[in-house]
């Protein structure tokens, strides 16, 4: 019933990862950089799912759940850091954090 080649799923994961990587490289707004990291983590999880579906084993889905947990913890700590940065510096510029002086 399903006749999807493995390459199509892996290429989709690669394209999504590349888009997230471009966004991390070009953005200066620190919230956008966090969003891009979420896109990249999601693409990595998609590659795990494709690999798990190739052999019909649940291990890929287990790894996706671990990635999901890590992404949730990362985004909560990252957003708390962004809040502190904005209160200290009144800007969302990622380059401004080198002027913190301890």
């Amino acid at each position: 019933m399903k006749a999807i080649p493995v390459e199509a799923g892996l290429i989709l994961a690669g394209v999504l990862f590349m888009l997230g990587l471009i966004s991390v490289l070009i953005r200066r707004n620190i919230i956008f950089m966090l969003i891009s990291v979420e896109i990249m983590l999601n693409a990595a999880g998609l590659a795990f799912i494709v690999a798990g579906a190739r052999w019909g084993q649940p291990d890929g889905q287990v790894m996706f759940i671990f990635i999901l947990t890590m992404a949730a913890a990362e985004v909560s700590v990252g957003l708390a850091l962004i809040l502190q940065l904005y209160h200290q510096l009144q800007t969302l510029d990622g380059d401004a954090a080198n002027k913190m002086k301890g």
């Binding site: 399903k2 493995v6 889905q61």
Partner: peptide, 8 residues
């Protein structure tokens, strides 16, 4: 290869 395994 094709993804033709049953869903998990």
């Amino acid at each position: 290869t094709m993804l033709d395994q049953p869903s998990i």
